[in-house]
Structure formats: C-alpha cells, structure tokens
Design a binder for these strands. Structure first.
Lengths: 132, 132
DNA sequence: TATTGTTATACTCTATAACTATA
DNA sequence: TATAGTTATAGAGTATAACAATA
C-alpha cells in the first residue's frame, strides 16, 4: 500500500507544481498551511506540528518563509505569553481567494478519469487511513 | 487530494519503519527495489528510474547501497555494453523470502479497520491515479 | 551524434539537541 | 520544573549539469 500511495502522489504533485507551485511560487507545505489558516482563522505553531506532519523547527522555517512573503503574520497569544498565533494577512486572504479557483481546476484535471462517486470514495478511504 | 495522500502515508510509513525499516535496516526505496527485482528477475537502471520514480543519480546510489550490503548485484547487459542488469543475489532472494511474511503482517495491521473490499477498492483507485 | 550510467555540486528536507522565554 | 518556540548542526534526500563509455 505504501508503494501505491507513493506512486499515486506523483501525478498529483506534478499537477500541483504546474497549477500552483510554479505560477504562485508556493511549495506544497505552503499551500497546506494557507488552506489550514483559511479554515481555522488562527493556529499556533504547536497546533501546526501535527496538522502539517512537520517537526517544530520545520514549522518555524515555513512560517518564516510565508511571513517574509507577506502572506501570513505572527501575533502574540492572548492568554499564553510563550505561544503565538499564526494567521493570514489581508494579502494572504487575497492570495487564497485567487488560489481557490485554480485549485478547483487542478483537482478537476486530476480527477478527470474518475467518476464523482469514485473520487469521493478515494478521499474518504484516504482520510480513514490517515486516522489509523 | 494531495493533502489526503500525504497524510495517508504517515501511518503507512510508520508501520513500514516498525516492521521492516528498523528490523531489517532497509529504507522504503530499498524495499521497493527488492520487490521489483523479485517480480522481474532483472531490470536495468534505466528501467528502474520510472518504476521507482527516482532520478538516474539516485538509482545509482540506491543500487550501490544494496550491492554493498550484498542483496543485489550488477551484471553487464548481454546485448548492450552501455547498459547493466540489476538482479537479486542468493542472499537477496533469501532476504525477500524473510520479508514477505513480515510485509503481509504489516499490511494486515494497517488494513485492520478496513473491510477486504474497501482495501481492494483503495488499492485499485490509487493504481488508476498513478497511471494518470 | 545519441544513449547509459556515473560523478560532482548544490539545495532542500528532516531529525536531534541545545537554547530562550514564559508558565 | 515544564512548555512553546527558535536556533544550530548534521545527515539524508533530490535535482541539475557535466562526464565517460558505448551505440
């Protein structure tokens, strides 16, 4: 199964690179972080560690990079001075707005040779596997 | 979908590391190469490039490592002096024989919370996606 | 002149441990 | 004393280009 997963990722990540990676200068992990912030308003680095399946130092690097590009910002946590909140800037929200239709087109391209039911089944089974 | 694939890989690769990676001192790509040679008798590095989704220099490195451990060997290609054939040694065949039941147990563990039909569906859909 | 495989080089990712500041 | 985040360092993976041998 690991072999199948690895090989299934190849065309999907290729499509990502063509539609989003190269045109927008974003890496997969950057895109994932932007979408997580879009869905959750604000997240701490500690919360991002399991969500992105990264180590704490890597989260620092990714947040640094996207902050340097102006898409996200760090804010002090309201109740815990050790912690932070990471959230989208106005520019980041605008970027996500431009990304969404592109992501939809990308998904449609990859899903082209599947029925809607098959595609939904695949997503469901992968989500269940991820919770194992 | 790329996000789902990446997250589904986490528990699968974790199971690999526990069952095969650490006990046998093998990386995922090593295991894939051994299984490919088991199924195909002999393959050239050029054939391995797309099968393992690696670049030619990386194939050289992986073959070097497994050859150094005595599991595989290089032979001159019978009809093309530029090429080679990579194949399992006797020790490599014995290793694959020990790996197969472990791999079966590993797969059973990961598949535990899926029905046989669901697991087969997932494998089929991932294979179709890999051919996109 | 093209192809197979290797070597060289640089860049990115990843993991661990050490450090700071706050609790 | 424990936790959140960062910095430092080293190891592994990955990609590109240059190279040697053969076709």
């Amino acid at each position: 199964m690991g072999f199948h997963i690895a090989r299934a990722g190849v065309p999907v990540y290729d499509a990502f690179e063509r539609h989003i990676g190269a045109p927008f200068g974003l890496r997969k992990v950057d895109y994932s972080l932007l979408m997580l912030l879009q869905a959750n308003q604000a997240l701490t680095p500690k919360q991002l560690v399991p969500l992105l399946a990264l180590t704490p130092p890597k989260v620092t690097m990714v947040v640094d990079r996207l902050q340097g590009q102006g898409w996200i910002a760090r804010q002090p946590h309201p109740t815990d001075g050790r912690s932070q909140q990471v959230l989208l800037t106005a520019a980041g929200q605008a970027l996500v707005g431009r990304l969404l239709p592109v992501a939809q087109a990308m998904e449609a391209e990859v899903a082209a040779r599947f029925s809607a039911a098959e595609w939904a089944t695949l997503a469901t089974l992968l989500r269940r596997l991820a919770r194992a």
